[in-house]
Design a protein around this nucleic acid. Structure first.
Lengths: 333, 333
DNA sequence: TTGTACGCGTTATCAT
DNA sequence: ATGATAACGCGTACAA
């Protein structure tokens, strides 16, 4: 690895000052066309690229952002990360990826590290952090996009992006009801999850508005994975054998529920209809293909990155974005 | 967002020079215990954190690395990324995540961007880039870990990590043979893929060594996803109805193949046994659960990050690491 | 149009 | 043990 070329190297061989080269590199006026061409040719042939570190030190801009997710292995966050990175590439930004793995210490360390590296902005998916910590951390960064958190009074450097969970759950219940189903269960996600609360609200409202009495026995919580969904569905069907529809917190839970039904000899969707949430790739791989509330996660990621840039540039932009899930009918309901 | 504190701020309020503070921050000798304690207390109470950008400019170390993958959404790379990030966290490094989406321009831009940001090292999963480009790019970085590429003469700043694809394929074939199966097909991945070549070799060698004639009609290529696997298996079973075992390039292809068998009324594993490769989470979600060659991708990611750090520190370390896949028997074979 | 001087926040070097 | 000074590579401000 040879020594990096600097502005001075180009300036020397071109016989001009560093400032002239700098102006050319940054496409700024004040350089004659002739000199400009000479320098551009030199930059090309010598393979010069600006040192972003040095540049950052003076401009206070790093052209990099932080993305904090619980686990990039979870297809939900993988899709979001992909969207963020796609948009970042288009905008000439780089993305630091950080997993918190539900570990507060690690999350804290990550924030510190990103701050020390002077990221221009932060895209933060954190369900667990308290409001106080959230606001304190937000104030350290130039701009922040919060995913799946609501803020009563959002700081002016912050944008929240949320899925319309209530409406999504209502759509699912409405679909079940239209099919004539009345014993509609809901396998919810973790209690502390904001999404879980909102989806439960949507479910309850839709049920009661339809005149179907709300039955607590039809609602249960589980971890948002297939195994937990399987176990929870097994217990549910044992407790309430006449269930004819299951709304699941997410697709993984839904798939577990479908497999539980099959294990108990209930066919899906004839005996029990199942609807998931998110529409991860797995939803179309599994048989029967899962009817689910599609959420365009890549698009959310892209929006997050673009909104972040807007905030960084202090452009006029909304402080909250609501994403509408869309019910896609496949085979399970 | 208030102004960042600097060394000078601490130095001023402590009534010492910046160098003394710097020494304390970096745990260097040459500071009396008394002063040291005073400064540490001040750093704590004022909440000072070093500016990594300024630090990088002088130390030529950024404590960040680049991770280039085709698509972080692919569970294969998601697991690797997770392992890399886990190890990076433990080692106090940050990870720039980049997707190439099989786009040479984007890959080139990414390398440029990472170089400009002066990453200390690079973990690079690239199947498509030519040898010349590969070597040219490698020489630009302090240290590089290459995933799933073999180098005839690896540069001294480079480590390659490969899966023992040949041995993996042989294990699968051996298992089929032990079950008395003789019409063993192989649905391979993309032609240009290094892994695909190696797995095909392992398959062919194992077949012929067992005295079973190698039949080209039993081998086909497809894209490494479920749909392509489905289509390829459909065509295969139409062409060679007496196939009694299918080795797939990866788990997604294997799942597609299983579904094709089921669609044709062949039961898995009774009529046709199926073995996949990689052992992605989906392998245990699908029914029947997939027998597959387990590759510990998280571990590969962790190893990659640790090996990279070793190279960066010029520690003695191997220049090539071979990872052994392990056949895990589940329901499909 | 072009160049000079300075500063960004830190560490390295060499004094004291 | 402590401090003054000079880098690191670049952009801003101002001068020529």
């Amino acid at each position: 690895m040879k020594r990096r070329l600097t502005l001075a190297d180009i300036a020397d061989t071109a016989g001009v000052s560093v400032m002239t080269v700098s102006r050319v590199i940054n496409d700024k006026p004040g350089v004659s066309d002739e000199v400009r061409q000479t320098i551009l040719a030199l930059v090309e042939s010598m393979g010069y690229r600006p040192n972003q570190i040095a540049r950052s030190l003076v401009t206070e801009q790093t052209t990099s952002v932080g993305l904090i997710v619980p686990d990039n292995t979870n297809p939900f966050f993988a899709q979001i990360a992909r969207g963020v990175e796609d948009a970042a590439y288009a905008l000439q930004y780089s993305v630091f990826l950080v997993n918190t793995v539900e570990n507060p210490q690690r999350e804290f360390d990550a924030l510190d590290s990103l701050w020390q590296k002077d990221v221009d902005g932060l895209i933060w998916c954190s369900a667990r952090v308290s409001h106080e910590v959230l606001e304190a951390q937000i104030s350290r960064f130039p701009a922040v996009v919060l995913l799946n958190r609501e803020l009563t009074e959002p700081p002016c450097n912050t944008i929240t992006i949320n899925v319309n969970d209530r409406h999504g759950a209502r759509q699912a219940v409405a679909h079940f009801l239209a099919q004539g189903r009345r014993r509609i269960a809901y396998l919810n996600g973790p209690e502390h999850s904001v999404s879980a609360h909102r989806r439960l609200e949507g479910y309850r409202d839709a049920i009661t508005e339809a005149g179907v009495p709300f039955d607590e026995g039809l609602v249960d919580c589980c971890l948002p994975d297939t195994d937990s969904g399987y176990d929870a569905a097994l217990a549910l069907l044992d407790r309430c054998p006449n269930v004819d529809a299951i709304l699941a917190f997410n697709d993984l839970v839904a798939i577990g529920a479908m497999q539980a039904c099959q294990a108990l000899g209930r066919s899906v969707p004839q005996n029990v209809a199942v609807i998931g949430f998110d529409d991860i790739p797995l939803a179309t791989i599994i048989k029967p293909q899962l009817t689910t509330l599609h959420v365009d996660l890549r698009h959310i990621g892209e929006s997050a990155m673009r909104a972040l840039l807007d905030k960084m540039e202090e452009a006029a932009c909304p402080s909250a974005i609501l994403i509408e899930p869309e019910l896609v009918l496949r085979d399970s309901a």
